[in-house]
Design a protein around this nucleic acid. Structure first.
Lengths: 156, 156
DNA sequence: GTTAATACCGAGTAAATTAATAGGGATTAA
DNA sequence: TTAATCCCTATTAATTTACTCGGTATTAAC
């Protein structure tokens, strides 16, 4: 019941992009350095974000990535689903009709549990907008002030 | 962001135990057969449930397992945490102080996201009691009636 | 028009985790 | 005494994760 590094790194990358965006595209190498993630791996994550329409790319020298929408229109749910796939606790036809129907559907009672978990997760992440995290980031950065050291390695 | 078979099989096993409990211990072999899970694997799951005080065992011939408490006192959260470990979306000191503190904690903004997801998952599963699922199981079994076939293999 | 900086793409791989299987020991009702 | 059961640990196959690697395409700057 854990997110993978795709979701964790990818969300940090999008926040980084939003915070450091100033009319110009941000190169992946910059995000990678600030966040302590390899460029190659980050490429794979940002490809998913682009495919989902969350970021746009600018090719060529001085290129990079920009948000495809204002941060208040992007939810954490959009970002995490782009990176992780659906946020359901199980692969179940009742939650996602792409899954094969379950032979046991008639008498299955656990599906109600999975549905409620899925609904609650998605409700929470849909409610949190990227703009909320950007604002929070600016706040904590200001508080941390000049005493901060650069320690990009982190556990969460 | 998926539960493992431990959580899925284990929850089904506990529901089976509760539904089929009638003053006598239920042998693992019976649960295994009804649920289409191997006895050996089920042993590992039930060991976790016993360790967490959710079931008690009766050793020897005619032995088996019984719920350690009435079904209304056991939540799905208790069961899933016994089987899966914590239900947090990431390993983060802010959610579980057994984790190592994060070098980045001062300026981390994603931790608020993880906290809200964790809280919502745990709230939902703590609210659903085993007795609710037993009642639901009896209802759907009655509806399915005699037309049901035995198809223990299932995807969720 | 060359160069350097960038995005884009797919294949491969090592490590970790999951999902079992296997086999023997301990306990107890019949 | 036996058979049914729980109990415990080790091993293994399959899958997934978390990358790395090496190349191609595009474009701004010079």
């Amino acid at each position: 019941m854990k997110l993978t590094t795709k979701g964790r790194y990818g969300l940090r990358a999008v926040i980084d992009l939003a915070v450091n965006y100033e009319n110009e595209a941000v190169a992946l190498s910059q995000i990678a350095e600030r966040q302590g993630i390899s460029v190659n791996y980050l490429e794979q994550l940002i490809a998913k974000l682009k495919k989902s329409g969350i970021v746009d790319s600018v090719r060529g020298a001085q290129g990079g990535y920009v948000l495809a929408m204002p941060p208040e229109e992007i939810s954490v749910g959009d970002i995490l689903r782009a990176l992780e796939g659906d946020l359901n606790p199980v692969d179940c036809y009742e939650l996602n009709s792409n899954e094969p129907p379950c032979s046991n559907a008639d008498t299955c009672v656990t599906k109600y549990v999975w549905k409620r978990i899925s609904d609650s997760i998605n409700a929470v992440v849909n409610e949190i907008k990227l703009s909320d995290l950007v604002a929070e980031s600016r706040r904590v950065q200001a508080e941390a002030g000049s005493t901060q050291v650069n320690q990009p390695k982190q556990t969460c």
